[in-house]
Nucleic acid binder design. Structure first.
Length: 976
DNA sequence: GAGCACTGC
């Protein structure tokens, strides 16, 4: 299955209800399998891999939109080449009818959004009933908004028509009046003919009627547009008439025109004060449209809250300061457990520590161990963190508490920055950094204690570390291992580490009220906005800010505009509501906005992605609105495609989000899903990254650590076997592994680079083509991802033009990236140049850091830094040396197909070659969005493939006279 | 002519 392989329960996570695979469905699936098998055999299909093929056929049939589509797939792959076409199409129709379309996999649900949307239009939407497209709510929101817009336009049209009719009426009356006057003037009535007289009478009657109508309107106290005073008599404004309205009430107070009275009334009602300070006290509650009802479901208990007042008071005297620091340390929830903890560490080699954030475990435990003498024999205490900033901050805090200089006894080590020295005994680092250290020191000899912090986050590196440290611990009984986690998942960690004891430390958190919706919500973006306004209007003013969790930039922008629009509509009876968007791609200076203190009397509403769940903490949040969704990256090892899916979060994630509201005082969390959904539809934990990512890099690392049997490596959660095999296969093709699965010389070199193996191979190969300088620039630029170019909505054309400058001569995206880097370098890394060319400075600086690091590694590996600026062929050949499996050939329909594992793809529109469509290309990555897109594409000559990768391509593979028939085994690959 | 959750080495 494409999105989340190897784990049945992990499929179809994109909706709340359809990911549960019931017994019936399993039975049905089995029936289907048998049926397909029989059908295949009756068609004369007989192969040793029939079991696998059945699975592929079923998967393909779920993916196709019509039986015709499916039949075409069959024909395309050539698997039924010996069969009659009509029988094949009949087979396709039968199987299509049988496949339960509800069970289609996530990735393809995206494609069906539109169709599902239409089908659902008539249905009353409830979350529990919705079994096909809960994650399409965003799409629905957009559609609903377009409908609203349409209605608005219709309304405007109507109004303008009314306006026009009114004007036309006036004009006509004017004309008739003129006519009457003229006719009466020029001719005597009796000189007119009968019909002319009749017409004149008729006209007079009309004028009378109109005058009467106006008069009656005034009587009826209907508001009428005042007579124009600027009727340009003689070309100027009729001042007298203009001011007569305003001065009349001074002249005669008794006689007030109805219109004036109305105006006065309006003025009295209106509040002319703006801003929250002057607002009138609210005597009534706001009632919103589509108000959402919540039910209080639970209270997340506080764990031993003890607020430490005036904690941060600075004191000048150093002795006072020191004792103050010590007092602070004693005040942490962990302090009473110090002795028990030290005893536990002494008694057991591995210890699982469970503690909420704020318990002080990260800063205190290493210090306790240090004080207890665990560093005496020259061993270090290492503590890993999933994030760079965390490692830096914690190290700074601990060095302050220990009153030593950062980098001396206490230090940190992160990529591009090693702030440690020989004296360092407490070392904080990112988990990836410790992983890299394994390459130098596979037994971690210089450490006496390793603490893996935030283990519950289950990052890729942490998961690999688990297996490695567990192994090391067995070989080194003197090494102490601490695994610290914040969730209830401790049992699982304990089981994994051979029933290690669990040590619990209370955290410091305030109670949080959890509210769930009474009924399921159709549009969570809209519901989140309504809830935020509900909170803002009904909860005491100035008591805390609101944090809304959304899935991405687009949703954040929509929500922001809706809030702004609605708050305008509510007028001034409501306090100010400041919106603060935050997501990782937001420019840094705009990100800073969320940390600004909220002005008096106003309230802040932070619209955040998952970034606010773990990566950053915002003070003053009292209310959390949890939409229950997030974007999750999925990798399909069969096709090598990556995609981002909107999926429901896990219970652990939901609790983490709720916890963001109780940091500084009691909080409230509003979940936009029912308690039933929470209990029954959410998974306990998010699928660990290791099960949904490309493992090539990890496999290479483990191989270089001498792990032979990767398939039986002791993972806490096993990655899909398919993904492991795919990674091994790739490494073999790249020449990093030999036939026995052992690391080759090339592989050893590749493992040194902190890059994807294909990029590493490209660099290693550049030695041969004498262009390593260019290649490491390209590798660095590719590593920063697709955030190099900046394309603001209002200046897209200029940005595109700037981008095209790097594409002159259709050199391809790789070379274009090289040009960007070199041009930036030529301007001495100018920020101004970046602005002018719509390039993100942040990304460029990262690219420069990566390039510097790669340059250092080249030196260590003895690869010369050579430059051959004008030999693009050499550069392209180096690229192909790493990316030859990504070579693709143009098809008749304008799409591309890879040579060995037929996988179709299209050149991404952002590519410089998207209009050129060369016959042969090599791509950097394949992503699945609305289609399979190849990102970062460069043209190549097919003969280069044979030259660079003769073990992979033969001349017949790249000949242009392509035979339609493909071998069966290969043809099937396109199903996946 | 498209759509960029979040990290990390």
């Amino acid at each position: 299955m494409p999105s989340l392989p190897n784990s049945k329960k992990n499929q179809n996570r994109s909706t709340f209800s359809d990911h549960k695979v019931g017994r019936d469905e399993i039975r049905m699936a089995c029936d289907l399998k048998t049926w397909v098998g029989e059908k295949l055999r009756s068609l004369g299909y007989n192969s040793t891999t029939i079991e696998l093929d059945i699975a592929h056929i079923i998967s393909a049939s779920k993916r196709c939109s019509s039986p015709e589509d499916l039949a075409n797939q069959f024909v395309d792959t050539g698997m039924f080449s010996s069969c009659d076409e009509t029988r094949v199409s009949q087979f396709a129709q039968e199987i299509f009818a049988r496949v339960d379309r509800k069970n289609r996999t996530n990735v393809y649900v995206q494609r069906e959004r539109e169709a599902a949307l239409l089908a659902k239009k008539q249905k009353t939407y409830t979350l529990l009933e919705a079994d096909e497209d809960d994650n399409n709510v965003q799409r629905r929101a957009v559609k609903r908004r377009t409908e609203e817009e349409k209605a608005m336009i219709e309304n405007l049209r109507k109004k303008s028509r009314q306006e026009y009719l009114k004007k036309r009426e006036q004009k006509k009356v004017e004309e008739i009046k003129c006519d009457i006057e003229e006719e009466g003037h020029l001719f005597e009535v009796d000189k007119l003919t009968e019909s002319e007289q009749r017409e004149l009478r008729y006209k007079k009657e009309i004028v009378d009627l109109v005058t009467k109508k106006q008069w009656s309107e005034e009587e009826a106290d209907v508001y009428r547009i005042p007579e124009e005073y600027d009727n340009f008599e003689g070309g100027s404004v009729n001042q007298k008439k203009r001011f007569s309205v305003t001065t009349q009430r001074y002249k005669d107070e008794r006689e007030i025109h109805p219109q004036q009275a109305w105006e006065q009334n309006q003025l009295d009602n209106a509040t002319l004060h703006f801003g929250s300070k002057d607002r009138k006290t609210t005597d009534y509650q706001f009632v919103f449209e589509n108000q959402i009802d919540f039910l209080k479901a639970a209270v997340m208990d506080s764990d031993g809250v003890s607020v430490n007042v005036d904690k941060q008071q600075p004191t000048s005297e150093s002795s006072v300061k020191k004792s103050k620091l010590n007092e602070d340390r004693k005040d942490l929830p962990i302090y009473p457990y110090k002795d028990a903890l030290l005893q536990a560490v002494q008694d057991h080699q591995v210890l699982i520590i469970v503690g909420e954030t704020g318990s002080g475990k990260t800063t205190q435990i290493p210090q306790y161990l240090h004080e207890a003498g665990y560093t005496k024999n020259g061993g270090k205490i290492g503590c890993t963190q999933p994030r760079r900033v965390a490692a830096m901050r914690v190290a700074a805090r601990v060095s302050h508490e220990m009153r030593v200089k950062l980098g001396h006894q206490v230090g940190y080590s992160i990529r591009f920055e090693d702030c440690t020295s020989e004296k360092t005994v407490l070392k904080y680092m990112t988990d990836g950094m410790l992983l890299r250290e394994f390459l130098r020191e596979p037994d971690l000899a210089s450490y006496s204690v390793i603490m893996v912090d935030e283990a519950h986050e289950r990052t890729l590196s942490t998961d690999v570390l688990f297996g490695l440290v567990k192994d090391v611990a067995r070989a080194r009984p003197d090494l102490k291992l601490l695994i610290s986690s914040a969730t209830l998942d401790a049992e699982k960690f304990s089981d994994y580490f051979d029933c290690a004891p669990i040590f619990k430390i209370p955290g410091r958190r305030f109670p949080i009220d959890i509210h769930h919706t009474k009924a399921p919500i159709a549009d969570y973006v809209d519901a989140a906005v309504v809830t935020a306004l509900q909170i803002h209007a009904t909860q005491p003013q100035g008591d805390g800010d609101i944090l809304i969790f959304l899935t991405g930039q687009e949703e954040i922008e929509t929500a922001e505009s809706i809030i702004k629009h609605r708050i305008k509509g509510l007028g001034t009876k409501i306090a100010e509501l400041i919106t603060c968007p935050i997501y990782a791609n937001l420019p840094t200076e705009l990100q800073a906005k969320i940390f600004e203190p909220t002005p008096e009397g106003a309230r802040k509403v932070v619209l955040a992605t998952n970034i606010a769940e773990t990566s950053l903490t915002i003070d003053g949040i009292k209310y959390v609105i949890d939409t229950g969704f997030c974007k999750i990256k999925c990798y399909n090892p069969r096709t090598g495609t990556e995609s981002l899916l909107v999926a429901p979060i896990s219970k652990a994630s939901a609790n983490q989000r709720a916890g963001r509201s109780g940091r500084t005082g009691p909080g409230k969390c509003f979940r936009l899903y029912t308690a039933h959904s929470y209990m029954n539809d959410l998974e306990d934990n998010t699928i660990p990254e290791i099960q949904r990512t490309n493992l090539a890099n990890i496999v290479l690392l483990l191989k270089s650590l001498g792990i032979k049997d990767l398939l039986n490596f002791d993972f806490m959660d096993r990655p899909p076997t398919e993904a492991l095999l795919k990674a091994l296969e790739l490494l073999f093709a790249l020449g990093a592994l030999d036939e026995d699965g052992k690391l080759t010389k090339v592989g050893e070199k590749m493992a040194e680079f902190p890059l994807d193996p294909m990029l590493s191979k490209m660099i290693v190969a550049s030695d041969k083509y004498k262009c390593s300088a260019e290649i490491i620039s390209i590798a660095a630029m590719l590593s920063v991802g697709n955030s190099v170019f900046y394309r603001p909505k209002d200046r897209q054309d200029q940005a595109d033009n700037a981008w095209m400058n790097f594409h002159i001569g259709n050199v391809g995206d790789h070379i274009a990236l090289l040009k960007v880097y070199n041009s930036w370098k030529d301007t001495n890394f100018s920020t101004q140049w970046c602005y002018e060319n719509y390039i993100q400075v942040r990304s460029m600086k990262i690219a420069r850091d990566i390039r510097d690091q790669l340059e250092g590694l080249l030196e260590r590996l003895g690869i010369e830094l050579n430059s051959s600026v004008n030999d693009l062929e050499a550069v392209k050949k180096s690229i192909i040396s790493g990316f030859f499996p990504h070579a693709a050939r143009l098809q008749k329909n304008g799409s591309y197909r890879t040579v060995k594992h037929p996988q179709t793809g299209h050149i991404h529109p952002s590519s410089g070659l998207s209009q050129v469509l060369p016959r042969w290309v090599v791509y950097h990555e394949l992503v699945l969005t609305t289609k399979e897109y190849m990102r970062q594409v460069t043209e190549l000559k097919p003969e280069w493939l044979v030259e660079v990768a003769p073990h992979y391509y033969q001349l017949k593979d790249v000949e242009d006279s392509s035979s339609k028939k493909m071998p069966r085994g290969i043809g099937l690959a396109s199903f996946k």
